[in-house]
Design a protein around this nucleic acid. Sequence first.
DNA 1: TCTATCGTTGACATCCATGTCAAGGTCCAG
DNA 2: CTGGACCTTGACATGGATGTCAACGATAGA
Lengths: 133, 133
Amino acid sequence: MRIGELARRTESTPRLLRYYEQQGLITPRREANGYRAYDEYLVDRVLQIRGLLDAGLPTRIIKQILPCLDAPRTIHFADATPEMLATLESETDRMTRRILCLTRNRDAIREYLEVVKGLSEPPLEVQRSHSAA
Amino acid sequence: MRIGELARRTESTPRLLRYYEQQGLITPRREANGYRAYDEYLVDRVLQIRGLLDAGLPTRIIKQILPCLDAPRTIHFADATPEMLATLESETDRMTRRILCLTRNRDAIREYLEVVKGLSEPPLEVQRSHSAA
DNA sequence: TCTATCGTTGACATCCATGTCAAGGTCCAG
DNA sequence: CTGGACCTTGACATGGATGTCAACGATAGA
């Protein structure tokens, strides 16, 4: 498929797809006329890239972890240098911390929303909580 | 406490604390001489801000959700406008998606690391998995 | 064939979280 | 009273993910 279609299917833009390519995250083939040609599997890959990006990882890191996530459980011995493994370890730690922080705060917001909702539902009654309305 | 101490205790910098203030995330008092004076509770608040920032939320959003997270379960009726509630709802959704994405990818990386480790431990044996070494 | 739509590259603009630097005020210790 | 450590404000710089625009080539449909 061409760049426009991929952009639509991944909710991104041609600009971004070129950017990801420039950052080495994807490497589409080229048609005879110079147009970029994207294979089907790149849809998922781009979605994953966008997810990771949105999750706060920089392209530099994404580039490193993408090869580990190839669908057909292919293990890439070649590029598994010790430093890279270390990077990955520490990156998973960072991700875990991120997840915890997000979860904590999301739950707090949820709780807040619950309370506020609970307050507006019964026709005006200040201070609920332990008293059964 | 003054800005330097808070910076040290939150692993940030004075520059950042001024920035957070400028973005309306914190509002320290002032000493007679103009120095910023930070109350103890701001340590936690700044840590929370940094966590959320690191988790990918922009200051604009953080500013909205912080008031809901005040320690002494104070409910802020005043600013609970319907739009704000809607914002919070959709933001928790975004956070949930982020969490899922992060978790998925972190687990994938972990799995990869497991496999790679498992491979290097026993003295060179190609393709393990279902065959008991 | 004309024109709209899509593609190409390259450059420049923007937003956001930060860094850095300058010029100056405050304060304490020697 | 002087030097150093800390504070102030303000400005400018930077890096990363994006937007936008210009100038041009390719393609397909009326």
